[in-house]
Design a protein around this nucleic acid. Structure first.
Lengths: 102, 102
DNA sequence: CTTATATATCAAGATATATTGATATATAAG
DNA sequence: CTTATATATCAATATATCTTGATATATAAG
């Protein structure tokens, strides 16, 4: 129950739905990518990414100064179906020029 | 987005998850059935059922004094997958003796 | 018609969650 | 070593959600 609630709670927020969809469409992104793509302050982005990670949707890999977030693989069928449902919402994707070198 | 958030928000609550699973396993129930099965006061039950209905999971049919709630049919694949995920949580089902005549 | 029952809704208080600005940590650059 | 950059976390405030008790409505029973 706790894990299920954490998963559902992690997508019970418009900001996180948009961030999750952005990562699902763009692949690996760092915190600053989302910061600039969505024009949000760093602490806010960082917190939402943490919640999505704890919800089981994202993995993070540190390389140098950057933390790269991407969809966790393999992803179970339930979370996969959520990603698909979100992809079908027709959210506008902000154009994300990456500010960090990869 | 609004409909999706309403759907997700409707299951972002332990009480509603249990109620939804109870209805999914037992079929049609009235408000007082849940009241007694879960030992909750009437206004609380009524409110949670309304939220689950607005989340697209339940339909309601009034017969006499009673309001009978059941899983909406046909249910779309996404909400269906949520019900299945909840069914797999292994929640204990309270024994629901119906207090109302059917 | 009056009373009892089932449900819905509202207002107030309690609890949880989101946002912001400040600070901490770690890595890279000069 | 010192400074700048990227990220994480904390404390305070703002906002949303949940619970309860009171009240309203509708139907059935006496």
């Amino acid at each position: 129950m706790d894990i299920f609630l954490k998963t559902i709670g992690s997508i019970n927020d418009e900001t996180r739905i948009k961030i999750l969809n952005f990562i699902n469409q763009n692949g690996e992104v760092c915190v600053c990518d989302i910061e600039s793509a969505f024009n949000m302050i760093q602490s806010r982005v960082s917190r939402h990414l943490k919640i999505l990670k704890e919800g089981g949707f994202l993995k993070v890999e540190r390389r140098g100064r950057w933390a790269f977030y991407s969809i966790r693989t393999p992803l179970d069928a339930f979370r996969q179906s959520i990603l698909e449902e979100i992809a079908c919402l027709g959210l506008e994707l902000p154009i994300g020029e990456s500010r960090c070198r990869r």
